[in-house]
């Protein structure tokens, strides 16, 4: 149960950090007399910092209540199926996909991304079926590319492909 308290404490620090960061940027805004463009950001940064402090205080003062509190139930059990490796792999794939979208082109990158992402996300008790995955990836990439290009006039980057 101590992990939960630590987690709430971390959240509080993150909240306060975000508030302070925003405050720092707000201070650098050009000011003039009266209500100016920095007025609302100043109010907001004060509110953000205050809420961060409140979160920290609530962790301190009612540690008991915090341990009983379950953040939003829904599939959020840190001990259960937490799988950081897959998250990192997924994020790396998405970053690579977006970064290469323009130079390599939408059709090729999409097919490649889908194929790799299917493999990464395949449940542990499933077999990876390379042929089916590659087929779905290719067909999806082609359909999406042609559909948007021809029917919706959206010029997705074609990249290396000549069409």
């Amino acid at each position: 149960m101590a992990t939960n308290k630590k987690k709430e404490l971390l959240i509080g620090i993150a909240m306060l950090g975000a508030g302070l960061g925003y405050l720092l940027m707000t201070i650098q805004l050009p000011r003039h007399a009266g209500i100016d463009a920095a007025f609302v950001p100043s109010l907001l940064s004060a509110l953000l910092c205050l809420l961060g402090v409140l979160q920290l205080l609530s962790v301190r003062s009612c540690a008991q209540a915090v341990t009983e509190y379950h953040p939003d139930g829904e599939a959020d059990s840190p001990q259960g199926g937490s799988d950081i490796k897959t998250v990192v792999k997924t994020l790396a794939l998405i970053v690579g996909y977006i970064a290469l979208l323009s130079p390599v082109g939408f059709p090729l990158m999409t097919a490649l991304y889908l194929y790799l992402q299917f493999i990464v996300l395949t449940p542990v008790d499933h077999r990876v079926n390379h042929l089916v995955y590659a087929l779905i990836a290719l067909v999806t990439a082609a359909i999406v590319y042609l559909l948007f290009r021809e029917a919706f006039d959206l010029m997705l980057p074609s990249g290396l492909l000549p069409f």
Binding site: A75, G80, G81, D83, T86, V87, T90, L121, P123, V124
Partner: peptide, 12 residues
């Protein structure tokens, strides 16, 4: 999608 990446591989 990121959420599923975290839990989906072990979920039924």
């Amino acid at each position: 999608i990121i959420k599923v990446a975290e839990s989906g591989r072990h979920a039924h």
